[in-house]
């Protein structure tokens, strides 16, 4: 297939997922929009969380969307990079913490 799996133009078609299931689509987008409203966390903080999660789930659409969202909100590049490092630390930590399991298995099986 010549068409790449990911195309930036597809981000604009996200809303089209409602076409094949309008009720669920509407519920999802209503929920989605509510999540990002000002609340106990500011919309700005939520945008940075979304950017970090986008890197964790490695979603190119989300990275594109939340980098642009951050620019519009006046979030600076060092703030964005710190958010990405939070994602990297948790993701790296999640691998490393499994090292405990490895160590336990190793020790249990070893003489």
């Amino acid at each position: 297939m010549s068409r790449p799996y990911y195309q930036s133009q597809d981000l604009k078609k996200f809303k089209n997922i409602s076409d094949w299931s309008p009720e669920l689509g509407a519920k999802f987008f209503e929920y989605y929009n509510s999540v990002f409203e000002e609340g106990a966390l500011s919309a700005r903080e939520k945008s940075l969380i979304a950017l970090a999660v986008a890197h964790t789930v490695q979603c190119p659409y989300c990275i594109d969307a939340y980098t642009q969202d951050g620019l519009q909100r006046g979030i600076e590049r060092n703030e964005m990079m710190e958010a990405v490092h939070v994602a990297a630390a948790i993701r790296g930590g999640a691998s490393l913490v499994h090292g405990v399991q490895m160590m336990e298995v190793y020790d249990k099986r070893s003489m």
């Binding site: 919309a43 700005r44 642009q68 620019l71 519009q72 909100r73 006046g74």
Partner: peptide, 11 residues
């Protein structure tokens, strides 16, 4: 840059 302004009140 090449992006739209965010919410005026928040900024």
């Amino acid at each position: 840059g090449a992006f739209l302004p965010g919410n005026q009140k928040s900024l």
